[in-house]
Computed example of a mutant assay.
Amino acid sequence: MSGKIYMIKDDDELVAMNEKKYKKEIDFQDLLEKYPDLIPGDQINSENPRRWLLVEREMGLPFEEEGARKLSLDHFFLDQDGIPTLVEVKRSTDTRLRREVIGQMLDYAANAVAFISMEEIREKVNSQYDELKLQDDFIAEDTDEKKFWQKVKDNIEEGRIRMLFVADEIPQELKTIIEFLNVQMNKSEVLGVEIKQYQAEDEKIRTLVSRIIGQTVEAQIKKGKKRPDHLLTEEKFFENLDQYGKNFFRELFKFKDDNELIINWGTTGFSLNVEVDKNKVSLLQGYSNIRANGQTMYSTIGSISKKVEKGDEIAADYVKKTLELKDFKKVNSGFIFNLERDLTQEEWAKFKGILSKTIKDIKKGV
């Protein structure tokens, strides 16, 4: 059933936009290749929104090791945690968008896990992406390229993949199957993605609206993505630090209070933010030993660059000066400090001075 959405123009005119079906499946595929963010990563994981790296469109998959390429997957993506994401696109008018597409996707998944290698995926990525751009714009902030590709390898070997059925409308019988599989499959994730398009009769613009199908609360909890009431508190955070971590974060929290910084707690750590005119700009992040990689402090420049005037300059100066401190190491576009020793009073004075200047620059620029 077709629907409408409404747009209010600058002159307060209400314009109705009618749902419009995609003419060809290839048009749908073109959109996903050009705009991967149409797959709403924030709906898949609101705490850590998924980002997408297209490995290949119409990717060939073998039926057997070193066998001929007999399967063709519409899109093969990786997310920032190296999870292979298989995408099959169908229009709602395609009669195969029922049980048949489920079997097709399971074929893709089984053969991808069995026969495709991390090395092959890496070769395809490196052939089309600049190495520095890949590291700066995609790889998770607190890791590096070597660790990222190790995650890809581990995910493939352990069968940890994501299967996405993309259509302009997911039929109820497919939705039921998707929800069932997503609950039952512990390692893998099975979801539908509806991407509806709307267009006004007298306008040359169109609007695309995406939503995830099959992300039930039961599935989220089972896969460890939804942890109601399990955000860390300061007390719980400090319980999971060794003495170096406690010393570091006690001093950092004193600085936080003196400078009226805002802390946002997560499930394994926190972010420290500068608040200006209700805008929050992330300055750094801290993690306890609950996190797999252990207690650490790191900072990225994405929030500063995007939200602050001359943010790139401010962030570059912030990172450059911090990296002059002993044991502060570059990670992607930011820096990391593994809490394996105490900072001296002189080091603290320098670090606080850098943070103070950066905070001042951020407040001027927002």
Score class of each variant (00 low, 15 high):
101 V>G: 02
214 G>K: 01
245 G>N: 10
288 S>A: 11
41 G>W: 12
146 K>P: 06
108 Y>D: 00
262 I>Q: 14
236 K>I: 08
315 A>K: 14
163 M>G: 06
115 F>S: 10
147 K>I: 15
133 K>R: 15
98 R>A: 01
304 I>N: 03
258 D>N: 09
333 S>G: 13
174 L>H: 05
122 R>E: 14
277 D>R: 15
293 N>G: 07
161 I>E: 01
320 K>I: 05
326 K>Y: 13
301 I>E: 14
204 K>H: 10
289 N>R: 04
115 F>L: 04
49 P>E: 11
163 M>H: 04
304 I>P: 05
300 T>C: 13
149 W>K: 07
218 E>Q: 12
165 F>P: 01
246 K>W: 00
318 Y>S: 04
22 Y>M: 02
112 A>M: 08
77 F>Q: 08
253 F>H: 06
105 M>N: 08
168 D>G: 07
59 M>W: 02
185 M>W: 14
87 V>S: 01
280 K>M: 07
62 P>M: 06
275 E>N: 13
48 N>K: 04
187 K>T: 09
319 V>A: 03
250 R>K: 13
254 K>L: 13
227 R>C: 06
130 D>W: 13
33 E>L: 11
265 W>I: 12
252 L>S: 08
150 Q>N: 15
277 D>V: 14
189 E>W: 10
262 I>L: 15
156 I>W: 08
133 K>V: 12
20 K>C: 05
